[in-house]
Design a protein around this nucleic acid. Structure first.
Length: 584
DNA sequence: AAGCTGCGCAACCGCTTAGTA
DNA sequence: CTACTAAGCGGTTGCGCAGCT
C-alpha cells in the first residue's frame, strides 16, 4: 500500500508505459492487434480509465476493456486492478484485530483458499489476505510462534467433533459455507464430492486440498511452536511434476510394496468411523479391520480435511495442491535451513503419486489437506497391511527409526512391518526416513535453523507432554513434530488436563506449560477424549500398539536419541486418515 | 550520507475451472 | 464430446520503502 503506482506520472502514459520493458509484447501479441500491452504498476490515469469503463459497462468481459477503453492492459490485469484496488467498498489499510483473527480461523479451516477467505472479509481482497498471511507466517516463524493459536486449533477440533457427533459428514458438508459465521469448521466440498462419487472406497487421490481444517488442526495441534507453518513455497505444478517424476519409476513398486491397500482401506476407514461414531455404511467384517487411529482426527472432517475446492478424486498420480498447512513436513524446511526438498518431495510425491493400489479414501481424510497426512495415511496403511500379512514381513527393521525408539516393545513387529513396507517403495519409505534424517540434522544447537525455536518452548511444552522427550526432541522442531505428533499418539505420555479445562481460555497460560494442546498427539494422549476415546483409540491401534504406547510413555528417553523423537512415531503411526467410508 | 538488507505490497504468471459454441 | 475462451485462483516475482550499519 505504501508503495504507490507511478503517481507522479498521473494523467499521462509515462514513458515507462510506452518504452518500458514491462510492455509485454508477448502478451500483446494476441487479441489486441499486435498492440503492446503495458505491464507494471498502474497509473492514476489508467485507474481512471478503468473505473470509467466499468461504470459504463460493468464488470466482466475484461478483455474488452483494452479494446474499448484504450487501456494498454490485458483483461487479466484490468480485472485484477479492479478487484484489488478500484472496486467500491474496498477496505484499505491494515487489517483490524478482528479481521486478523478471522483470517487465522479461516485459514485454519480453508487453507490457502484466499478467494474464499476474502468472501468472509468484506472489503478485503484475496491478494491482501494472501499477502497478510504470508507476512504473518514470516513473522511468526521469526518469532518462533505457532501459526495458529491454540484456541483456533481447539475450536477447530471441537467443532469437528461436534460435526461428527451431530450427523456425520453430510451435516458437516451442509454447513460448510456458513461455518465462518458459526465458527464452525468448514469442510471442503471436494472431500464430499469425492466421497459421493466413490463410495466408501475411494481412490487414494490426494487432490491436495488446502489446508484442511483437519490438516490444519493437525498442524496446529501437531506442531506446537510452528504449527501450521507453511513451507517454502514450491510451485504446486512444479512439485507435482517433480513428484510424479520421482515416483514414476517406482509406480510399479508401489503396488508391490503395498499389496493390500485395497483391502486395507475399507477395513480401516470403517473401523475408525465406527469407533468415532461416524456413520459407516458397510461393515463387512469388523474384526478384520485394522486398528488404526487417527480416525479421530479424520473422522472429523473438519479436523482432518482440508478443503479444497476443486479436487475430485482421480486415479493415478494426482496433482496435489498442498495447503499451507499441508506441509507439515514443510515445517522442516520452513524452520530450518536444512534442505527440506527431499522430504517434501518424497511426501509430495507420495501423496501425489500414491500407490496405484489406490483405493484409498482420498477425501475422507482429505489427503489433500495435508501432504503429511497423506503420507502418514499411506504409511499407516502399509503398516496395517503388513500386520495383516505377517508372512510378508521382513526382519529388516534395521534403519534407525522408530524401531529403535520402541526397542523391546511390542511395536517391534509393527516396526518391522513398517520397515518392510516402507522400503524401498513406500511413499514414506523415503519420506519417513529422509524426513527424519533431515530433521535430525537440525541439531539441538539450532545451528541449522535460521531461527532456532526457543528451546524453552519445546522443552517446556514437549517435555511435559512426552516422557520420551529429550534434548534431541528440542532439536527437532515443528517439522519433526508434525510428523511425530501424528504417530506418537500411542506413546504419548501426557500430563493431561481435562480438555475443557485445558482449553479454558483463562487457564490457557497456566496449562500450556503442562500440555501442548496445539498438538494432536498431546490431545489424543491426554484426557481430552476421555476414557471412552482412549478406548477407541486403543481399539484402533490394536493391543500391541496400545501396549507400546504405554511402554513408550514410560519410556526410555535415550532410546530415541540418535534418531530423535520423531523417528519413533513413524513406525507406530496409525493411519491417520482412513475415513473414506463416509459416504452416504 | 551511502550502501545494504529485509519487508511488504502490487502485479504478474501459469494453471484450473466454468461456460459456450 | 471436443475445442475454445473468459474468468478466477493461488503462487511467485519485482519494486519501493524503511531501518540498520
Amino acid at each position: 500500500m505504501s508503495r504507490t503506482t507511478n503517481e507522479s506520472e498521473d494523467g499521462v502514459l509515462s514513458k515507462d508505459q510506452i518504452d518500458s520493458p514491462l510492455m509485454d509484447e508477448s502478451n500483446g501479441g494476441s487479441g489486441n492487434g499486435g498492440m503492446v500491452l503495458k505491464k507494471g504498476p498502474w497509473t492514476s490515469a489508467e485507474d481512471a480509465i478503468l473505473v470509467e469503463y466499468v461504470k459504463k459497462h460493468g464488470e466482466g468481459n475484461w478483455n474488452a476493456v483494452q479494446k474499448h477503453s484504450g487501456l494498454f492492459r490485458c483483461g487479466k490485469s484490468c480485472r485484477l486492478r479492479w478487484a484489488n484496488h478500484l472496486r467500491p467498498n474496498l477496505k484499505k489499510g491494515a487489517f483490524t484485530p478482528e479481521e486478523e483473527r478471522l483470517i487465522v480461523e479461516l485459514h485454519a479451516k480453508m487453507g490457502n483458499k484466499w478467494a474464499r477467505m476474502a468472501a468472509h472479509l468484506p472489503g478485503r481482497t484475496d491478494n491482501e489476505i494472501k499477502n497478510y498471511w504470508n507476512t504473518r507466517i514470516k513473522r511468526r516463524q521469526r518469532a518462533g510462534l505457532p501459526l495458529y493459536p491454540p484456541e483456533v486449533c481447539l475450536q477447530a477440533f471441537q467443532e469437528s467433533q461436534q460435526g461428527q457427533s451431530s450427523g456425520g459428514i453430510n451435516d458437516v458438508d451442509r454447513v460448510q459455507h456458513d461455518s465462518m459465521q458459526a465458527n464452525s469448521f468448514e469442510i471442503p466440498d471436494v472431500v464430499f464430492d469425492s466421497l459421493k462419487g466413490n463410495g466408501c472406497v475411494l481412490p487414494y487421490v490426494p487432490d491436495l486440498p488446502d489446508i484442511s481444517p483437519g490438516g490444519m488442526l493437525m498442524k496446529g495441534l501437531g506442531s506446537a511452536p510452528y504449527c501450521g507453518f507453511m513451507p517454502p513455497t514450491m510451485h504446486r505444478q512444479k512439485r507435482l511434476r517433480e513428484s510424479t517424476a520421482l515416483f514414476s519409476t517406482s509406480g510399479g513398486s508401489f503396488k508391490k510394496g503395498f499389496p493390500q491397500f485395497d483391502q486395507f482401506q475399507n477395513d480401516t476407514c470403517d473401523k475408525v468411523a465406527r469407533t468415532f461414531g461416524l456413520p459407516f455404511p458397510h461393515d463387512p467384517d469388523p474384526t478384520t479391520r485394522s486398528p488404526l487411529s487417527f480416525g479421530v482426527i479424520q473422522g472429523s472432517h473438519s479436523l482432518s480435511n482440508g478443503n479444497s475446492s476443486a479436487s475430485k478424486p482421480t486415479s493415478g498420480a494426482v496433482k496435489l495442491e498442498l495447503p499451507s498447512l499441508q506441509y507439515p513436513e514443510t515445517d522442516l524446511g520452513s524452520w530450518s535451513t536444512s534442505p527440506p526438498p527431499p522430504l517434501l518431495e518424497a511426501i509430495d510425491a507420495f501423496i501425489q503419486s500414491p500407490p496405484q493400489v489406490g483405493t484409498f479414501e482420498p477425501d475422507c481424510t482429505s489427503p489433500r489437506n495435508s501432504g503429511l497426512l497423506d503420507a502418514l495415511l499411506h504409511e499407516a496403511k502399509a503398516l496395517s497391511s503388513a500386520k495383516n500379512h505377517p508372512c510378508e514381513k521382513s526382519s529388516n527393521s534395521s534403519s534407525v527409526t522408530p524401531g529403535d525408539v520402541a526397542k523391546g516393545s511390542n511395536l517391534n513387529i509393527c516396526e518391522a512391518e513398517w520397515e518392510e513396507n516402507r522400503d524401498p517403495i513406500s511413499p514414506l519409505g523415503h519420506s519417513a526416513t529422509s524426513l527424519f534424517s533431515e530433521c535430525t540434522p537440525i541439531s539441538a544447537s539450532g545451528s541449522s535453523l535460521d531461527e532456532p525455536p526457543p528451546a524453552e518452548t519445546f522443552t517446556g511444552e514437549y517435555l511435559n507432554l512426552f516422557d520420551l522427550e529429550t534434548n534431541e526432541d528440542k532439536s527437532c522442531p515443528a517439522s519433526c513434530y508434525d510428523l511425530c505428533c501424528l504417530t506418537v499418539l500411542p506413546g504419548c505420555n501426557v500430563k493431561s488436563e481435562p480438555v475443557d479445562q485445558a482449553w479454558a481460555p483463562d487457564k490457557e497460560k497456566e496449562i500450556v506449560p503442562l500440555m501442548d494442546y496445539t498438538r494432536p498427539d498431546a490431545i489424543l494422549a491426554s484426557e481430552w477424549f476421555g476414557n471412552g476415546m482412549h478406548e477407541s483409540i486403543a481399539s484402533l491401534l490394536g493391543d500391541d500398539l496400545a501396549a507400546e504406547c504405554k511402554h513408550l510413555a514410560s519410556g526410555n528417553p535415550t532410546s530415541n536419541q540418535g534418531l530423535g523423537f520423531s523417528s519413533c512415531p513413524w513406525n507406530t503411526m496409525p493411519p491417520v486418515c482412513q475415513m473414506s467410508a463416509q459416504h452416504p
